[in-house]
């Protein structure tokens, strides 16, 4: 009996010791953080990092909701997903003063619509989403959303759009000048009709292939993220990234503190670590988007600082985040999307 107790105590101590060693469990996109940076953090703070990966915001949400919550400390959701996760009670709050480097965040990214006052998240990377056009095929004005929704003759049947409801519907809303999450029935019908009539001009829906179809010439125009478009250009695609005057989509990935994080203290250390200019610069140079932290610009690659995809022209419109709609509007959007792809 005594022996049994001794074993139990030993086990408990061992388990406790394993925790005290310092661990951090990161739920992240694949290939979105350089391994050296993880090694650096592990060394500086004597923490063992395990990383699990997901391939879409929604897959991460489904996985957390299906029972994975409690096994990870931090995740890296996109803007609208931060709000959804917060509303679903999947996020822990960061108290004032818990993050020493929060002051490094650029002013414009502090009071963001998806997480006012940054209660659950810090900026990771941001960028814009619009579309790129092959200038060998079409030489006219590309800075209009008509390229996608009412394309000129040369581009018809050669357009790829992102296979993502949020981005396509937001761009359509911008095209029509309709506010997001509008509950006005006429506006929603207009939106539905626009998408139905535009579909005949589209060759394909695809997000992962957005770059390859432009490089290979399968598509002559395509909705695309700015960093992706820069890569396509560097691979030799004769394309130009558009800044449509109707408006442009902006997105931001954020590091969030998950509820029931097994290693909350280390998660906060990790977030502080990613707010240091030097470290987030390493991420940006790796991922080719933009950081949301001050004092980083000088540490970025020359190419990145001057890329037309990252530096908008002076007359470019302000960006719009995808808004999180209420259940009623969202179900109309779902219906529109299903009708579009039926």
């Amino acid at each position: 009996m005594k022996l049994w107790k001794l074993c139990a105590v030993a086990l408990l101590v061992a388990a406790g010791a394993a925790n005290a060693e310092g661990r951090l469990s990161v739920y992240h996109w694949f290939e979105y953080i350089p391994q050296e940076l993880l090694d650096k953090f592990a060394e500086e703070h004597d923490v063992e990092i395990t990383m699990d990966t997901y391939d879409s915001n929604e897959a991460m949400l489904a996985s957390l909701k299906a029972g994975a919550l409690g096994s990870y400390d931090v995740a890296v959701p996109g803007d609208y997903m931060v709000q959804i996760m917060a509303e679903s009670g999947l996020l822990d709050s960061i108290a004032e003063g818990e993050l020493a480097n929060l002051g490094n965040v650029e002013e414009q990214w502090m009071d963001v619509p998806f997480d006012p006052g940054r209660q659950h998240s810090i900026p990771y990377q941001w960028g814009s989403t619009s579309f790129s056009v092959n200038t060998d095929v079409y030489g006219g004005d590309i800075n209009t959303t008509s390229i996608i929704f009412d394309p000129p003759e040369e581009l018809r049947g050669k357009i790829n759009v992102l296979d993502s409801q949020g981005e396509v519907i937001l761009l359509a809303n911008l095209h029509l000048g309709i506010p997001q999450c509008s509950t006005d029935r006429d506006q929603l019908r207009q939106l539905d009709e626009l998408l139905q009539s535009a579909k005949q001009h589209w060759a394909s829906f695809g997000s992962d292939i957005a770059k390859d179809v432009l490089v290979s010439g399968d598509a002559a125009a395509g909705m695309i993220y700015n960093g992706f478009s820069a890569k396509a250009r560097m691979e030799g695609a004769p394309i130009k990234y558009a800044y449509p005057r109707e408006g442009i989509i902006v997105w931001m990935d954020n590091v969030v503190l998950l509820k029931d994080a097994p290693n909350r203290a280390n998660a906060l250390k990790f977030m502080d670590f990613l707010l240091e200019p030097e470290n987030i610069a390493a991420v940006t140079n790796f991922a080719r988007y933009s950081p949301g932290v001050m004092g980083v610009t000088d540490m970025l690659d020359e190419e990145l600082r001057t890329a037309p995809e990252s530096v908008p022209p002076a007359d470019a419109p302000a960006g719009t985040f995808i808004a999180v709609c209420d259940e009623e509007t969202q179900s109309v959007y779902d219906a529109i999307w299903t009708r579009l792809k039926k």
């Binding site: 694949f30 290939e31 979105y32 990966t53 997901y54 391939d55 992962d208 770059k211 991922a287």
Partner: peptide
């Protein structure tokens, strides 16, 4: 497969 599908997010 999970590594490849993940990597493809940045283009193949």
């Amino acid at each position: 497969p999970t590594a490849i599908f993940g990597a493809v997010k940045q283009g193949i």
